[in-house]
């Protein structure tokens, strides 16, 4: 079953878009709906619908894998559940912020967007989370600074704790050992973002919050070295406040690192992790293309924002 699952993932990988495909879409030589997987994409719909239809393709690919190998469904769902945590963050910002109509990812396994949008207070949100696998039985969190960023940081930690818990479960623990290092690196990339966003409060919060891995002071330097990104380049991007560029750079390096680390397991379960990463990056890339074209940005600007892994 595992081999069949991985073979299907390899099959799906051949359908992922390459640089030439993105260039053809951006230059208007080809429409997204001309690609088989995106046949349902409606060029006439509004931008939000377009963006969500791209994510629907990503979700359907992962769901397909989950359906062909139900034994591994928990693991595949856990990878998709990242979107659910993102939806929780969106609702949190909505509650704390100006309460406009929230725009959710079209995914909900334990927390459907319709249910989330009914949540009116933060307390209600934490209570709801306690009923989910992300924070089952947890205490209502108490925060140090009370900022939204702190709460989002907490949610990110919850997701990685949950993912680590799935990866460490008896059944997967043996098969997914190689993935642990990648997840840890991915978590550190995420932490790196929070380190910049939270500034001085970061270390304090890191000490207080439950976290999936221990993070030493040299962890970030080691992560940058491991991903083979020039530390001067990282410093420069931080100083110029080019966080998106930095995140793109680190994401690309992370994909390369994941490819390198999981190459020996190309017909084993860890490959699903890599495939998820690539499919997610495709959705992100297409989202950028859709927004970039809608906003009338230059082709070069759009293409330079994409992450190519092929």
């Amino acid at each position: 079953m595992e081999t069949y699952l991985v073979v299907r993932a390899h099959g799906l990988k051949t359908r992922l878009l390459g640089r030439a495909d993105y260039e053809a879409i951006v230059r208007g030589n080809r429409s997204l709906s001309s690609f088989n997987d995106y046949r349902g994409f409606n060029e006439e719909s509004d931008i939000k619908e377009k963006v969500n239809s791209v994510y629907r393709v990503y979700i359907s690919r992962m769901k397909l894998l989950s359906s062909v190998a139900p034994d591994y469904g928990v693991f595949i769902d856990a990878l998709l559940d990242r979107l659910e945590i993102e939806n929780v963050k969106i609702q949190l910002r909505n509650i704390v912020g100006e309460r406009r109509k929230p725009f959710f990812y079209p995914y909900g396994r334990v927390l459907a967007p319709a249910r989330l949008s009914e949540v009116a207070t933060e307390n209600e949100l934490w209570e709801l989370l306690k009923k989910t696998p992300y924070y089952r039985g947890g205490k209502t969190p108490s925060f140090v600074t009370g900022s939204v960023a702190e709460k989002e940081f907490f949610l990110d930690n919850l997701y990685y704790l949950y993912l680590l818990q799935i990866l460490s479960e008896g059944f997967f623990s043996k098969k997914l050992v190689p993935v642990l290092d990648v997840v840890r690196t991915e978590y550190l990339v995420r932490l790196f973002y929070w380190k910049i966003a939270l500034g001085g409060a970061f270390q304090r919060l890191l000490d207080v919050f439950p976290k999936p891995f221990t993070v030493s002071k040299s962890a970030f330097d080691a992560m940058i070295k491991k991903l083979k990104v020039e530390s001067e380049e990282v410093e420069d991007l931080i100083n110029r406040r080019r966080l998106t560029e930095l995140l793109n750079r680190l994401t690309l390096a992370l994909i390369r690192y994941t490819e390198y680390k999981l190459r020996p397991y190309s017909v084993e379960l860890p490959y699903i992790y890599l495939f998820n990463m690539m499919a997610y990056v495709e959705a992100k890339n297409l989202e950028r293309v859709i927004i970039g074209l809608d906003a009338g940005l230059q082709e070069e600007t759009i293409l330079s924002s994409l992450v190519f892994f092929k």
Binding site: I90, P102, F104, Y105, T244, A295, L297
Partner: peptide, 11 residues
């Protein structure tokens, strides 16, 4: 908005 995505930007 393009780089971070519509969901992130909106929220």
């Amino acid at each position: 908005r393009m780089s971070r995505g519509e969901h992130d930007f909106e929220s």
